[in-house]
Design a protein around this nucleic acid. Structure first.
Lengths: 192, 192
DNA sequence: CTCGGATGTCTAGCAGTGCTAGGCTCGAGT
DNA sequence: ACTCGAGCCTAGCACTGCTAGACATCCGAG
C-alpha cells in the first residue's frame, strides 16, 4: 500500500517538474523552443514519458496556463488590497495586469494567446480561470457604472488590457506611451 | 528587351498568385495548413520557387498582411462615409473593424497576431499599415476629447477593439454579448 | 525464495515541417 | 547553330509532435 502511495507521489512530483520545466524553457526561449525532445532532455526522461502525463504539447501549455492563472489572481488581489479609493484600485489592477503580462510573457501566452485546450467563460471552465476573472470583477465591478452588468464591464476592460498587452509586446504599439494609454483607459472606462 | 519585360510581368503575376493562394489556403484551413509544400503544390511549382520570391514563410505572411491592411482601410472608410454624426461614425468604424476581423480571420492574424516581419509604428513602417492606422485616426481623432492626442486615443481604442476581436475568436469571450460590449466601449471611450 | 506478470521506460521510427544544395533543361543572344 | 546562363526541380538536411514495440525492473503471490 505504502509502495503505491510513494509511486503516486513520485509521479505527481515528476508532473510538476514537467510543467515547471516547460514554463522555464518557454520564458527563457519562447514557446517555439519548448519541443518535446528538449523538454524530455531537461527533465532527464525520454519523450514518451511526457505522454504518460499529458495527451500532448497542448495539455502541457494548458497546465502552465492554470498555474499562471492562479498566480495572476494573487498578484491582482495583492495589488488592489493596498489601495484605498476605487480609482486607485482600478489603476493598481491595470498596472498589475500589464506587469504580470510583461514579466511572464510565456505564461501570459499560455493563458490568452495559445491553445491550451481549456474552456473559457463556461460551466466547465477550470476553477483557476474562473477565479482569475473573479479577481478582476472584485475591483472592476464597483466602477461599472449604473445599469451596467459588472461582468460585462469587466470583460470590456479586460479585453482592452489584453489588446494593449499583446500589441505592445509584439511591438505594434510603442512602449513609450504605455503609461499615458493606461491612464486614458482607466479614466474613460471606469465610472467613479 | 520585350522578352525581359514579359518575364518580369510573369514573375510579378506569379508572386501575386503565391500571395493570393497563401491567403486563400489560410482562410480555408488556417495558417498552420499553409505549408511550403502545400502552397507550392497549389501554385503548381516546386517549393524552391517560393524562395525565389520570398525569403521564407514569414515574408509571405507579411505580404498577405499588407494586402489585408489596404482592404481594411477601404472597408473602414466606406463604413464611416455613410454616417452623419461622430457617434454614428465611431460605431460604424468599430463594427467595420470587428466585421473585417470576423470575415477574414487569417488576414487579421497576419496583420496583428503573426510575425510577418513588418515594422509597426515606425518610420520604415509600410505605407499600407500607416494608412490603415490613418483611417482609424480620421474617425477617432474627432472624439478623442479635449487635450488628448488623437493618435494616442486611437491607439487605445484600437487596442480595445483588438482585444475584443482576438478574445472573442479564441472563444475566451462568448460571442453572445458582443454587441453590448461594443456599445459600452464606444459610449465610454469616445467623447461626443 | 522464486518466479510470473504488470508496470514503467526507452529506442527507433513515422509522417510531417521550413529551407537549401546541386544538377538538369531549355531557350535567348551571339 | 551553338553556347551558356537563367530558371526550375529533385533530393535531402535537421527538425517537429507523436507512437509502436521491445526491454528491464520490481511487486506480490505461492
Amino acid at each position: 500500500m505504502s509502495v503505491q502511495e510513494r509511486k503516486q507521489r513520485e509521479r505527481a512530483d515528476r508532473e510538476r517538474l514537467i510543467v515547471a520545466t516547460a514554463r522555464e524553457l518557454a520564458e527563457q526561449q519562447g514557446w517555439d523552443a519548448v519541443t518535446t525532445r528538449r523538454l524530455a532532455e531537461r527533465i532527464e526522461y525520454s519523450q514518451p514519458v511526457l505522454y504518460s502525463h499529458f495527451r500532448g504539447k497542448r495539455e502541457i501549455i494548458g497546465a502552465v496556463a492554470l498555474e499562471g492563472a492562479a498566480e495572476m489572481a494573487v498578484a491582482m488581489r495583492v495589488a488592489t488590497a493596498a489601495a484605498d479609493t476605487p480609482r486607485e484600485r482600478v489603476a493598481a489592477l491595470a498596472h498589475a495586469y500589464l506587469d504580470f503580462a510583461d514579466r511572464n510573457p510565456a505564461v501570459y501566452d499560455a493563458l490568452f494567446q495559445l491553445d491550451g485546450g481549456l474552456a473559457y467563460a463556461q460551466e466547465d471552465t477550470p476553477e483557476q480561470l474562473k477565479d482569475a476573472f473573479a479577481a478582476l470583477v472584485e475591483t472592476l465591478g464597483e466602477v461599472a457604472g449604473d445599469g451596467v452588468h459588472p461582468e460585462l464591464f469587466t470583460e470590456v476592460f479586460w479585453a482592452s488590457l489584453h489588446g494593449i498587452a499583446t500589441l505592445t509586446r509584439s511591438r505594434r504599439l510603442l512602449p513609450e506611451d504605455a503609461e499615458k494609454r493606461l491612464e486614458l483607459l482607466v479614466d474613460r472606462l471606469a465610472v467613479f
